[in-house]
Structure formats: C-alpha cells, structure tokens
Nucleic acid binder design. Structure first.
Length: 878
RNA sequence: GCCGGGAUGGCGGAAUUGGUAGACGCACGGGACUCAAAAUCCCGCGGUGGCAACAUCGUGGGGGUUCGAUUCCCCCUCCCGGCACCA
C-alpha cells in the first residue's frame, strides 16, 4: 500500500471501476424498496459552480447511505437546456445557442464525472432535445383540447429601442439593460395555463407533504386563498349612460364585507374599461393613465412606488345607501387580481387610508375594536383588526363573521353579490417572444383561426442555426420556420413563433428520467419511480418551479398519464451559496458585471467592503453586496481548481462539512486545506494499521445486557467501542433523518481523534482498530467515496465498498454502568457527579444535596425545590 | 412594500424535545522534529479579574415567560431568498 494519499491516482481508478461495472445503473424493478432522489437539474451555463457541487454532493451522500440501507436508489441527471443565457451568449460571440448549449453540457458532464457522483447516466436528458420537447408540445395540445390552456392578452415589458420584449432580469431601474431606454408596458396575445383551476388542491395537498414547513407556508401565501364577497356597485345614471360594457355597475371583490358601510370611494386599475371611458373627454386623466402604462410590471416595483390616483368624474352607487361613490384611477390597483377594481374603506384599510389622506377623501369609521382608540390623524394597526360594527345601520353591534354573513345575504337578496373564493394566484402565462425554447405547436390560419399541429407532425422542430441579434425573435424573422399550410383547410398559414416558458421543461423532466426512451410522454416505469422520495435544490425555487411542477403533475394525472398526485414526497431546500457582486454602468446605460477574481477589495475598519477596483487597470467598480452565484452576475466559483489541486473528495468533504445543507453560505475556500489534511491523515491511519498485517474486525462476545465486555477489553478499548457505536448511531441519524452532514463528519472526526489516543499493539487492540477503520470507511463513503473505496480495498480485499450494508450498532458496546449528571443551583452549573445507572430519583436527590459543590452555593438556605431530569441534571432551587 | 428565512468566539459552525454555550474544523500563538523550511506531531485559544483554584459577563439590540432560554413569546435592527419573462 502506498504510504501517501494521491487523489489524482485513486479517483480516476475508482471512477473507472464504477463505470465498467455500471455500478450506479438502477433497475426499473427490484425486490428492494425504491428510492428516487433527484437534484434540481442544472442550467448548462458553462461550468459547474459551488452551488451545484453542494446540491449534487448532498444528493450523492443520500444515494450511498440509502443504498447501504438496502434500497434500489436512482440518482439521475439532466440539463435544463433552454433559456435566455444561451441567446445572450449568442449575441455576445455570434455562436448559435444550440452549439453553445451542447458544448456547455459536454464540459459540465465531464465535471460531474470527475466529482464521482453516483449518477445513472443512461437516463440523462436535455430539455433542448426534440425527443424531450416534443412531449411539451404533445401535452400542450392535450391541455388545449381540455380547455386547460387558453389564449388571451397579457402585459409584457417592451424596450422601445431594441423593439423587443424584455425579461424582468433585463430591466434595470426601469430601463432596458442593453439600450438604457425607459421601458413600456405592452399588451400582446399569450397562451395561459389554468393553474387556478387547481388552486384548491394545490393548497390542500400541501399538508401531506414531507416538505419544510416554511416552503409550504410560502406556497399557501402565494396561492393566497381568501374567502370574501364579490358584488356590484351599480353605475350612477350618468355613468350608466356612458358605459357601453352592458354591465350594471362596477364589480369588486372584498374579504372585508363587514366594512361595506365604510366605503367612501372606489378605485380601478389604469387599464380598466371605466378608466378608459372616463379618459375619453379628460386629457389630464388620459395623461395619468399613460403615465401608469410606463414603468415595469414587477410586483416589487408596483408595491414600493408612490401611490397615486386621479378622480374619473364617474360615479357608482353604494349598494345599500344608494349614495354616490366617486371612482378613482389608482396606480396601486392591479388589473391582474380580482376584477381590477376595489371598494375603498379608508377607515379600515391601510392603503386606502394613506390614499384618502393624500387626496383629502372622507375617512369613515365603522368597526370598533375593544379598548382601542380611533382617530383619523394617523393609521394604527388595530384599525384593520376584526371587531364589532358601528355607524353601520342595521349591522351595528354585529361581530365580524355575523356582519359578513348579513351583508352578503342582503347583497344576494338584491342580486348584487355573492360569497366567493378568491386566489392571489394567477394563471400561468407560458408564451415567450424568444427563440431558444420549445415552439408552441399552433398554426394560425386566416380561415380557421388557431389550429393544432397534428400529432403525427410533432415535434415542431426548433431550427438550431439561428443567431439572435437582440431585436425581436429570430423565429418571427424566419419564413422557413413560420410559413406553413393550414392542417385543416390546406391554405397558407403561419406558425406561432412564440416559444414556451422554460418552467414548462422543468415541470415534468423528473418523470422522463424513469423512461427516457419511451415512445410516449411517459410509460408505466414512471409509476414505479414516482413520486420522488427526495427532491433537492435551492430555496430560490420554493415557489414558482415547485408550484408549476405540482400543477403539471396533477394535470398529467388527470389525463391518466401517471398515478402520482404529487411529484415530490420529500423536499430538501438547500441554502444559497453567495459571493460578492461587482458591476459598472456602461456608456449606453446598461450594466456589466465583473467576477470577484478580477477585483481588489478595500475594507473599512469594521471589516465591511469600502470600495473595489479592477485588478487589470485600477479603475473603480461598484460593490453590489453579496448574492447568489450566477452566470449573469459573473460571481460563480468553478470547482475545477479545487479538484485539480486536492481532488474531488476534498472538494466534497469541504462543502459538506462547512455548514448544514439548508444554511445560506458566503463562499470562502480558506479552510479547504483542513479537509485535505483530514483525508491525508485518514490514509496514514489505515496505512499504519495495515503495516502490522490485516486482522479480522473485533466481534463482541458478550451477550446483550451483560456489561460492556470488561474483562475481555481494557477500559480504553471499551471506551473506543462505546464511541464507535455511538457514532454509527449518530451518523446514521444525521444522514437518514436529520439530513445534516456536517455534524456526521464531525462525529467521525471525533471518533478518529479518540482512535489515535487509544492505539496500541495487542491483538484485541488491533481487532478493535480494524473494526473502527472499516466502519469509518462505511460512514465516510457517502461523503468521500473515492478514498473510502481505495482504503476499503486495502482493509477488505476482494470485497467492494458499494456492496456493503450500513454498519449495525452493537448494543452491548453501549451499556454503561454509571452516568454523569450536572449539578445546578438556581439553574447555574456548579459541578458534576457520577451516579450508578440504576440510581433512583430519591437517591440522586440525596447525593446531590450532599455534594460539596452544591451545599457551598446553597449558603445554608433550605432547598425549596429539587428538579431531577433523568440522565441529565439535578437543579436545586433555594 | 409583501411573503419566507437568518444573525452564536478572529472565521465556518455545534448544542436534535427548554437542560453543561462554543463539539468538530479553520486561522492564530507556543513547543517538538529539522542546518533551515515545508510536511507532521503535541499544547493553548470567547471577554474581564486571578499565580492558580475559581469567579463573573457572554448566543444581533430591547423586553417577557421559566427552577433553567442560543432554543418559547412580543418589539426593533441588519442581512439573504422569492415576488409571476433569470433559472
């Protein structure tokens, strides 16, 4: 055996052995229970970064642990290969997105292989391959037939200089990132999926999922199911005469029908029909609506902007009092939520209150919250709380629930309103005016309208040789793509040149892993593997991706394609790996980013970043704080250097031991050396042990319950075995239940620190050493499989580490005669005492009171109370 | 702004169900080995006082519950993630 640890020699050799024996290929049927653990598939941005390394190493550790626990485990890998960065790269270097993407996939696959992850590569998929995206198209058409997909207009952000639709990411401070032009909103036709049809099930079935509670809470809040009343504020006569929408009034939705008597005005979105009508003879209002049209569409922007409004001069009537209520246009009313119109109750809604104060509108109090003062001078949080109605005529004295019931019953009797459930969730708009995505399989015919591409003509293949130039979609400029015949009438027609949101691709890829070669979207193998037993990925996907995938799975279930109700039975949301971000404005008004390696940092006295300069020319760059590693912000860290310098095992050990998987971490490789040192020491320990020849591992001769084998083993050896078996139990619990790998690694290090101390040469000691080393390889294998395999081959030649079972805990080694308790006086630690494991409560109490450390701090006072916590402590209260 | 999360030594983190705060490691200091260095090994390492034993303070800030709070409750600050076209 080589006395030195040479990762560059052993890692490729171990990997070759795995590949040659197809060690990680999972069968689609097995007497063992299946375990399907999947990391969120990467976007092939060019290189792996530390976030990927963390993600896949966690998945890999679980793979190895559960395999040792006797399960048929599958760890697949794929590529989320469509998306915007490929188009940006194409614009930057003139390479077609397809070539860029496939080159990146090839490189990143090599990196994955060098990391030694237990991936079943026979199931690899790439979403940009026609074999995959044809099923996006096929399922799109099935959903369209069922009415789950429909077409309507939607709002997008428009760059008036590049004449193109912008992604939110491409808008910086209200301007296009390449042109610096002020962006505008535009309404265009788009395809939508009726995810709202599934809103109730998406909320209700969260309860049964083994997900982190905060993720479930985020999804509940996102869907935002609220129970309320929808009603109509009838048009006042002059307004009715002007409105040509055949409606009797303005429809609104409220969760606070109990406050209906507090209405002092109404507000509509700028895009609302009533606003449009009012603006026809009101240039000032028209200008205000135009102003509202400028600016972005992002919720964060809408929510933080100054609340502005303008009266329309049109009136509706209060449903009960028939008093005229003026309608305002408010920039804070969202056209996309509810009816795009709200009743305003400034007395009990914070936003309405601020609006009323600003424009001098009436504030009317109609709810009394017991014991709280009310004044219209300043908003107080309790104005929004439930209470008892006042100033509300017949509703006075009613509590909230009763008032809501009474109001909605009266509205119903007048045929003006009804109780209704409202969701914050909006339907999913999937059309993208981009090139590098799944073509929408629809043909627009002047005679027949929207016509489905016949199944036999699928897939509609995306041409791979186009290069986008930043102005509009290349598909829309490619007659070879869009010119076609109508499948119905045979006349000339035009393909839809939009592509699908890439969230479509990632909504079902995990099912395709089960049957990557199927001649249908999925086959019965998906029912074997689904649902995922563990899905692992970044917390940033807590809402959108996970919600879309849940919706899509349910839609597939309803189509009879799979049996699973939910895609992800358990979820581990990994914390983000952050790094510093540096940028600079370009002359055109856009933004360019610099990687941390290109920058020198200046720190202030508190250790905060005070400034940054480019290493190349010393020019100043802006420090944008820290954020997620990403290609677009150029702050990712490639693991390649670390692999080349220390090997994959060191990189794996380092990321796994540095922090628990769910923690957000600021990247630093300062202490990676320590992980490498540990592996060198591990190698040396096995080497030194084997210098004395191989021995059989120690087997406990003492039957259960007969002491810890004293008489057969010296105390240090018995202590070492106690530690070993404690460690096996702890590490198994950390891997299997807690999913906390850093503490598992620390526990093995503690064990091996003790091992060094207890080492000697007699046969019993060597047998125990063999036991400790063998079991340490089994415990570390999930984290550092290459070195563990290489050392296992030395310890147990002729057997394979990956065929071993998880080590059993020897209960005989864990029997203890005495227990150490801590002694407290008034909750402060004052000493320790050892008591027989069999001591009774009373005996322990007496021993504690007799202990000098305790009596010293009792200062002669009598014990008022003695608290004994079994196996832990005695606390004397004086 | 809204929703979710976080803050513990110089640094990463541990303390799993309210029960010894700082496991394990990094950095640092001292020592051994060496002509020297690297590597390796040993010792120390939250603050204050003390030769020491030990005492005392200490888990972002403020308050509370409890025999006992890093852990539970209330308020606040800062940071991270998401906010529907980044993926």
């Amino acid at each position: 055996m080589d006395p030195q640890y040479h990762p560059r020699a052993i890692e490729p050799a171990v990997q070759k052995e795995w590949t040659d024996s197809r060690a990680f290929a999972a069968p689609d049927a097995s007497p063992k229970p299946k375990y399907f653990c999947v990391p969120m598939l990467p976007y092939p941005s060019g290189k792996l970064h530390m976030g990927h390394v963390r993600n896949y190493t966690i998945n890999d550790a679980l793979y190895h642990y559960l395999r040792m626990k006797g399960m048929n485990v599958l760890f697949p890998m794929g590529w989320d290969a469509f998306g915007l960065p490929a188009e940006n790269a194409a614009m930057a270097n003139g390479v077609p997105p397809a070539k860029w993407t496939w080159d990146n996939i090839a490189y990143m696959k090599k990196q994955c292989q060098a990391m030694g992850w237990a991936i079943d590569w026979s199931r690899e998929i790439a979403t940009c391959s026609p074999d995959y995206y044809r099923w996006n198209q096929w399922f799109f058409l099935r959903l369209w037939e069922k009415g789950v997909i429909y077409r309507t207009t939607g709002v997008v952000t428009w760059d008036p200089v590049d004449m193109t639709v912008l992604a939110n990411e491409q808008v910086i401070d209200g301007r296009g990132w390449r042109t610096g032009a002020l962006v505008e909103k535009r309404e265009i036709p788009m395809w939508y999926m009726r995810i709202t049809q599934y809103a109730d099930e998406l909320v209700d079935s969260l309860d049964g999922l083994g997900w982190p509670e905060q993720v479930k809470q985020m999804q509940r809040n996102w869907i935002g199911r609220s129970y309320g009343v929808e009603f109509t504020l009838p048009y006042a006569p002059q307004t009715a005469a002007r409105m040509k929408d055949n409606k009797a009034g303005l429809k609104v939705f409220t969760t606070r029908a109990d406050t209906i008597m507090g209405i002092t005005f109404a507000a509509v979105a700028a895009e609302h029909a009533l606003a449009t009508e009012a603006a026809r003879d009101n240039p000032q209002l028209a200008a205000f609506i135009e102003e509202c049209r400028r600016g972005g569409v992002q919720e964060a922007e809408l929510a933080t902007m100054e609340k502005k409004g303008m009266p329309t001069g049109l009136f509706v009537l209060h449903p009960f009092t028939k008093a005229p209520v003026e309608v305002w246009v408010g920039n804070y009313v969202l056209m996309g939520y509810g009816e795009g119109a709200v009743m305003a109750v400034p007395g009990h809604d914070e936003r309405d209150f601020a609006f009323a104060k600003k424009y001098g509108l009436e504030i009317k109090r109609v709810i009394d919250v017991a014991g709280q003062e009310y004044s219209t001078d300043a908003w107080q949080p309790w104005y929004e709380q439930a209470g008892v109605n006042v100033n509300s005529g017949k509703y006075d004295g009613m509590a909230q629930a009763a008032a809501i019931d009474a109001v909605s019953a009266d509205l119903a009797a007048m045929e003006l309103g009804t109780k209704r459930v409202q969701y914050r969730l909006r339907d999913w708009g999937i059309s993208r005016q981009r090139y590098w995505g799944t073509p929408i399989p629809i043909i627009q015919c002047g005679q027949c309208g929207d016509v489905a591409v016949p199944d036999a003509q699928l897939p509609v293949v995306l041409p791979e040789d186009l290069v986008p130039d930043g102005s509009g979609s290349p598909l829309a400029k490619s007659p070879a793509f869009y010119e076609c015949q109508c499948p119905k009438c045979g006349g000339p027609a035009k393909r839809d040149t939009d592509t699908m949101d890439t969230f479509v691709d990632s909504s079902w890829y995990f099912m395709r892993y089960a049957c990557p070669d199927a001649n249908s979207m999925v086959d019965e193998r998906a029912d074997y593997w689904m649902p995922l037993d563990m899905y692992i990925g970044g917390i940033e996907h807590a809402i959108l991706h996970l919600l879309y995938a849940r919706f899509w799975t349910k839609a597939m279930r309803d189509m009879g394609l799979v049996k699973a109700d939910e895609p992800f039975a358990n979820l581990l949301t990994q914390g983000m790996v952050l790094n510093h971000i540096f940028s600079r404005r370009t002359a055109k008004g856009g933004v360019e980013y610099f990687s941390p390696e290109e920058v020198d940092l200046a720190m202030d006295a508190e250790g905060k970043v005070a400034g940054a300069k480019l290493k190349a020319d010393g020019s100043a760059v802006d420090y944008d704080g820290i954020g997620t590693m990403s290609k677009s912000k150029r702050n990712g860290v490639d693991p390649q250097d670390m692999i080349e310098r220390y090997g994959a095992d060191t990189a794996r050990l380092y990321v796994m031991s540095a922090s628990p998987p769910t923690d957000t971490v600021l990247w630093s490789d300062e202490s990676v050396e320590g992980s490498f040192k540990f592996l060198k020491r591990l190698w040396k320990m096995v080497h030194d042990h084997l210098e004395g020849g191989r021995v059989e591992r120690y087997v406990s001769p003492s039957p259960l319950g007969e002491g810890r084998g004293e008489g057969q083993l010296s105390k240090p050896l018995a202590d070492l075995r106690f530690k070993l078996h404690k460690t096996i139990a702890k590490v198994g619990d950390d891997y299997g239940r807690r999913l906390q790998f850093n503490t598992a690694i620390a526990a093995v290090r503690e064990l091996l620190n003790l091992y060094l101390d207890g080492q000697d040469k007699d046969p019993a000691a060597r047998a125990v050493a063999q036991e400790v080393l063998e079991d340490s390889m089994l415990m570390l294998g999930p984290i550092v499989p290459h070195i563990a395999t290489a050392l296992w081959n030395e310890l147990r030649p002729g057997t394979r580490l990956i065929d071993q079972s998880w080590p059993a805990v020897d209960k005989a080694a864990l029997v203890q005669d005495s227990i150490r308790l801590m002694l407290q006086v008034n909750g402060k630690l004052r000493g320790h005492m050892d008591v027989p494991a069999s001591a009774s409560h009373e005996e322990i109490e007496a021993m504690a009171l007799a202990d000098p450390n305790v009596s010293k701090f009792m200062e002669g006072k009598p014990a008022r109370k003695v608290i004994v916590v079994r196996g832990r402590l005695v606390n004397v209260v004086v």
